[in-house]
Simulated scan of single mutants.
Amino acid sequence: MARWEPNAAERLAHAALELFAERGYENTTVIDIAQRAGLGKSTFFRHFQDKREVLFGGGTMNALLAEAIAAAPATAGPLEAVAHALDAAGGEVFTPARREFIARRQAVIAANPELQEREALKNLALIASMADALKRRGVTDLTARVAAELGALASTIAFERWSRTAAEDDFSETARQALDEVRASTAFC
């Protein structure tokens, strides 16, 4: 691939996944990833802080969820605003076209404790982003935190289901169903 081609970040992510699967995470360098993508090391560092970040997309998901919560209808309650955010994730991140990439990414993360730790930290940051976005909508601190935590739980459940289903299944629908189930289960607590 020529260096001038667009989508450098996406190319780097795909190259990293290929190399992590072939050689293992520990045996792959930033230079290896950049070369596989047909780019230079400096291009890699323009997009990612280190080789872990190539799998985690910086703060892209945090921003997507916060923007979607902010854009939810003014009449939406906290969980409905979170559902709006999960819809946005389904429309932009968890798409049928990205299903294979996401499944491969999860396999690499599952095989590496360092990446599992980074994934856990990322999930905490997502919860904080959603809670902050809800607070900006005027939701009280505790309610915002609970709604964000429930949204994260629903997202995890939805992701597990979505990743095991047919390619055409819609993440947004799966996430809404999971959120409804989580909400219903709180009645028994």
Rank of each mutant, 00 (worst) to 15 (best):
G59A: 14
A144M: 12
G90P: 00
N123M: 11
R118W: 03
E92I: 04
G90K: 01
L86K: 01
L121Y: 07
G91S: 04
I33Q: 00
D32T: 05
T140S: 15
L134E: 00
A70R: 11
V93T: 06
G40C: 07
F44I: 08
F45I: 12
G77I: 09
A111Q: 15
L65R: 09
K51I: 09
N62S: 15
A89I: 02
A74D: 14
T143I: 12
E92D: 05
T60H: 10
L142K: 08
E92F: 06
E119A: 15
V93M: 04
K122C: 02
P96H: 10
L64T: 15
P113A: 12
T60G: 13
R145A: 06
L134K: 00
A133C: 08
F56Q: 01
L65S: 06
Q106E: 14
A144T: 07
M130T: 15
D132L: 10
T75H: 14
L115C: 12
P78A: 15
A133P: 01
P96I: 09
Q106H: 13
S129E: 04
P113D: 10
L142C: 05
R145K: 09
A107M: 13
A97D: 02
L115R: 11
R99N: 04
A83R: 10
A34E: 04
I69W: 01
T143S: 06
F45W: 10
H47T: 08
L86M: 05
L115P: 11
K41L: 05
G57F: 08
A68K: 01
D87C: 06
G59I: 12
A34K: 02
A66C: 03
D32E: 02
H84F: 03
K122I: 04
P96C: 07
R99E: 01
G90N: 00
A120D: 14
R99P: 05
T95G: 01
V93E: 00
V139A: 07
M61Y: 11
F48W: 01
N112P: 14
V82I: 13
Q106W: 14
K51Y: 05
R98M: 03
E67H: 11
A131H: 04
A133N: 03
A72P: 13
G38W: 05
V146R: 10
G91L: 03
A107W: 14
A111D: 15
D32R: 04
R46T: 10
G38N: 10
L142G: 08
R99M: 08
V108M: 13
A131W: 07
A81W: 01
G38I: 07
